[in-house]
Design a protein around this nucleic acid. Structure first.
Lengths: 262, 262
DNA sequence: CAGGCCGTGTGGTCAGACCACAGCATATGC
DNA sequence: GCATATGCTGTGGTCTGACCACACGGCCTG
């Protein structure tokens, strides 16, 4: 079988032409298996060579489709033999979201200011959700995972700027995960990831890192307090001030306030 | 040059081993070019064969990277010769966002309910933004592109259910685009796309399509009215009711209200 | 029975060969 | 002189076959 067979043959084509490219055939086949429940997280995909012969395409086309699935965070591949080898369904969205947003920012498809605005919207929604969930329970909500990160940031002087900002990102991500919404959590991870280099580049613009980091730590605590108190309005306001404050201080964003978060 | 040269050679490796896989080398190379501004939307990527020899990898590895970029919405490829052929930077995020979310939903990485919740959050943010932007101007805001879609939906009886829902999706997307935030707009496109099949599948659950579609059309108009009036609070409430109402009616979502949107 | 060895199947990569296609330069016709 | 037809050239799209490194698991050996 040669390439011409798999696609179109002008005169009286016995087999109907397939406008899809070979790798799309593979992708859609796997997607259909996922939708039908024939493939669930943890399952192995057939071997590349098997998939190729089953679908009547070349192995390279299969690999192009698998590469897409891998970048999108749907599969994990590993060489060798045994239970852990091959392509396994994992469904980890954050990696794909990060790649997508990072590249779109790089390609000027996304404006950095829009990324920040969007983060503001999602972050506000997250703390609102958490605060109301906390207020609805007599014993409050367990923000342990997030608070642990704050404790780590309190190791004053022993945390570099990059480490501090990484912990900061992890804290906000932890809040998103605590809200239980995987979609928002992965979006936040992607948004933050896509502008990470810009955030780091803004540090030298700060008048005093010690002062800023101290303020950030205090603001984090106050956000947690507002959530635990169940005061959604307060939590939303504080998280908005927290984020816009930092970006304004690093001359990153011009607009001090944003109506979207209200 | 064989595969072993490109990767590791155990004894006294003259060239340092590269833990990255070949396609990642290509991807990062292109990303670096984008970040440095050496590649901007509209530019052509080097030919696959050229890229391969320049980076010292095989053409198949280059193609795997290009495939990823294509699915992520960064490039567009075309065969033949001339100015329109080859791989061209386009930076259209919505396609990649749709693929990502659709596949993650299929692979159970995203819960459909979380998708709806997230859409609620973003949609509320969009109309809030629009209403405040409109209220700040004496002449209001031009919602023309969105209203045109509503007019198309008013061709009662001559619009199939699928067409109606497509117009519905386009309307909401138009609002997001009018807000000027490309990040949110592409997210909305992806979210909607990822649950499109579920939305269509829910139509038979409706007691009366005529009644429901009529209500939806009325709600759309009322949302537009609220935006043009500049009443953000009202617009937010209406859009929330609009979305939750439909999903509740199709037995799609159990929770009638969601605190995230308040 | 324990340890080491090797077969086997996996993904990772490359090289080379075609194909269809689109543009453009050239040649050919009027 | 102009318009049309022709073929060349370079592009992505695809397949095939060949290696490699690797990890497991059964087998053999001590």
């Amino acid at each position: 079988m040669t390439a011409v067979d798999a696609r179109a043959v002008s005169p009286a084509s016995a087999a109907p032409i397939d406008p899809r490219r070979a790798w799309q055939v593979v992708l859609q086949h796997i997607e259909a298996d996922l939708l039908a429940g024939r493939l669930v997280p943890g399952d192995h995909l057939p071997a590349e060579r098997t998939l190729a012969s089953e679908l009547g395409v070349g192995r390279s086309s299969v690999r192009e489709a698998l590469r897409v699935l891998e970048v999108l965070g749907l599969i994990r591949t590993q060489t060798g033999s045994g239970p852990q080898s091959g392509a396994i369904i994992v469904a980890r969205p954050s990696g794909g979201m990060s790649s997508l947003m990072r590249l779109q920012v790089a390609a000027q498809g996304f404006d950095v200011r829009d990324v920040v605005k969007t983060r503001l919207v999602l972050e506000a929604a997250v703390v609102t959700e958490l605060a109301e969930a906390s207020g609805a329970r007599v014993d409050g909500l367990d923000l342990g995972p997030a608070v642990e990160l704050l404790d780590a940031m309190d190791a004053d002087g022993r945390v570099s700027e990059a480490e501090f900002l990484a912990l900061d990102a992890a804290f906000h991500l932890a809040l998103a995960e605590l809200s239980g919404n995987a979609v928002i959590a992965s979006m936040m991870a992607g948004l933050r990831n896509s502008i990470e280099s810009y955030v780091l580049a803004g540090v030298p613009n700060l008048p005093s890192w010690a002062e800023t980091s101290g303020r950030l730590r205090h603001e984090h605590r106050s956000i947690v307090d507002a959530i635990e108190t169940g005061d959604a309005e307060l939590a939303r306001g504080r998280v908005r001030a927290h984020i816009t404050g930092y970006y304004t201080e690093t001359n990153f964003i011009s607009a001090p306030a944003d109506p979207l978060t209200r």
